[in-house]
Simulated scan of single mutants.
Amino acid sequence: MDAGNSKTDVAFVGADGSVLASSRGPGFQPPKVGVEAALDILASTVGEALAKAGADGEGADSVEHVSACLANADLPVEEEELTAALHARGWGRTTEVRNDTFAILRAGVDEPRGVAVVCGAGINCVGMLPDGRTARFPAIGKLSGDWGGGAGLAEEALWFAARAEDGRGEPTALMSALPAHFGLDSMYALIEALHLGRIPSVRKHELSPVLFATSAQGDPVARALVHRLAEEVVALSRVALARLDLLDEEVPVLLGGSVLAARHPELDERVRALLATRAPKAVVDVVTAPPVLGAALLGLDHVGAPAEAGARLRAQYA
């Protein structure tokens, strides 16, 4: 299973790599609702997949291994706690929980070897080797030194636009572009609407594409933010490669998540140019395969399935 903040995909996969059934359900958000409540929501999606596969009610009797890549499993201790909580549900004989970034990495490589940077609502990076070694970051926001992600970019854009309008900051086209996205004529009106809840705060993520569009039109403030994000992506990649002793080897560096998968030309070109200098042997690519494929491949790795099973599984998600 791949469970993100907004949606969950579950696949019931045979040992030969055949997808026997799949289902989609709501997101996985234990920080908001608590672990058990989040698992209750997850259980309905799992149950739907089991029922489609004809295994409803059999649980661990029919499932050898549960491979779960979950949002909000940011620290190893959280992975351990969630592994125990999922296993207690009796969905399989064995259970392994990983952060959902590992699913994107494994979906993009033929073997568990490489580095992935994911930039969606937030930003994260992981690396892994076939021998089980990994490189990772806490990725819990500013507290752990993170910068970027769609939500973070929107906050930065709002900050610069607000200061441009009231005179504390330098001029930027973001000052008019951000409120215009919501049909408003000033940053003051947008600030008021967000503060009073007339525009739900969750909609702030819509401003990330506005930032990229404004940068593409030549606005220096917007462009500086795009370039800073490229620097963050490359910094994460290079540190992960160094931790795994991969800087001197040809190795995949995969980009995923809504912001990076959108392939904004300026961001994409900047990331590739910086990596060519700082990690010249990195082979950069964008992951377009669904993360649930990666979670399933990790499951096949765990049970020692032959390479043909992984190839069959990948073909079904092509």
Rank of each mutant, 00 (worst) to 15 (best):
A53M: 07
Q217G: 09
V303Q: 07
R198H: 15
D100K: 02
E249F: 08
A262R: 00
V287A: 04
G25Q: 08
T45G: 08
V253N: 00
G120E: 01
A224K: 07
L42F: 12
L300D: 03
R278G: 09
L254E: 10
R133G: 08
L153E: 12
L86M: 13
R133D: 08
C69S: 06
L244R: 00
V233G: 02
G310Y: 03
G122R: 05
R263F: 02
V13A: 02
V239A: 14
H87I: 10
E48W: 02
G108W: 05
V35I: 05
E156C: 08
M128D: 05
E64I: 15
A116E: 07
A230P: 11
D185E: 15
A318G: 13
V66D: 13
S215Q: 01
K7V: 00
F212K: 00
Y317L: 05
A68P: 11
E308G: 13
H65N: 09
G108S: 10
L244S: 11
K52D: 09
A139I: 13
L190K: 10
E192Q: 14
G57T: 05
Q29T: 14
A305Y: 03
D61V: 08
V77L: 11
L105Q: 03
K7F: 12
G17C: 06
A3R: 10
L105I: 08
G169W: 07
A224C: 07
L86Q: 07
V118Q: 00
V234W: 04
A295P: 06
